[in-house]
């Protein structure tokens, strides 16, 4: 158990004019920890995720990240170039729609290899070998390495997006509804894969989802959002088994039992 967090979030708020996107969010994330942000549509989950990952500038607050040299840097005070470098190497971002995170018109191998080239790999043979290794880790047959993601099914595209993100050995991965829009059998496979990868690689992850089963399976800790505010925050088991807030009780009791 390390004693230094990876990410320190304090007072993050985002306003769209006079409307609240998210308000006064505070938490810390440690290495290897998976945090789920849950809530209904429009509760501010994605706004918060975008603020944390610097895809969106918050109106107020700060997010500090512990760089590989051990020093904390305020993400909003970095140069654009530094932020982009971080995004391409030490971070991953898995979009709900794989088309947002992939280049649809270059091969699967190149999609994975691009991130490697961004960190300085130049040896074509090695890049291809690593790409092929990652395709098999996400259960895509290696004879599809030269095919474009356009020719892949939704589930395969999502797995390719995950491979593309994880190939550089990131320490923090953001995921926006990683299993949304996939059918149930594909979801189960993807979840199991994600769970295994997160455990094996010791990744820290922030996962936005409205699916509480996904949150239970993947996350250690859970934050419940409503109208832009974090209304409940705790151990995932505790929030789901003993919800305290009226809205959380409603949310948890609305799950259909199978």
């Amino acid at each position: 158990m390390t004693d230094t967090p990876l990410l320190k979030v304090s007072g993050v708020s985002k306003f769209y004019g006079s409307r609240i996107g998210c308000k006064d969010v505070n938490f810390e994330l440690w290495p290897g920890e998976v945090l789920a942000i849950v809530g209904e549509s429009g509760s501010g989950k994605t706004t918060l995720l975008n603020c944390l990952s610097t895809r969106l500038m918050p109106t107020a607050g700060s997010v500090e990240y512990r760089m590989r040299d051990g020093n904390f840097r305020d993400l909003y005070h970095m140069s654009e170039a530094e932020r982009r470098f971080l995004m391409r190497t030490d971070w991953g971002f898995v979009h709900q729609n794989p088309a947002d995170g992939l280049r649809m018109t270059v091969s699967a191998g190149a999609n994975v290899g691009e991130r490697l080239m961004a960190i300085g790999d130049r040896h074509y043979g090695k890049i291809r070998e690593t790409a092929s290794d990652w395709l098999s880790r996400v259960e895509i047959s290696t004879d599809r390495i030269d095919d474009q993601p356009r020719a892949f099914s939704g589930g395969m595209r999502q797995r390719l997006q995950i491979a593309r993100n994880l190939v550089t050995g990131p320490r923090l991965v953001f995921m926006d509804e990683p299993t949304g829009g996939l059918d149930v059998s594909v979801q189960a496979r993807l979840l199991d894969l994600l769970r295994g990868l997160v455990n094996d690689l010791g990744l820290a992850a922030i996962v936005v989802t409205h699916d509480l089963a996904v949150a239970r399976l993947l996350s250690h800790r859970m934050m419940v959002m409503k109208d832009g505010h974090v209304i409940e925050h705790g151990l995932t088991d505790r929030v789901l088994d003993d919800p305290r807030e009226p809205y959380t009780q409603l949310f948890v009791s609305s799950i259909l039992q199978v």
């Binding site: 705790g234 151990l235 088991d237 505790r238 088994d241 003993d242 305290r244």
Partner: peptide
């Protein structure tokens, strides 16, 4: 469940 942390 309280001892295991599932209940507050």
């Amino acid at each position: 469940k309280m001892l295991y942390g599932n209940y507050a």
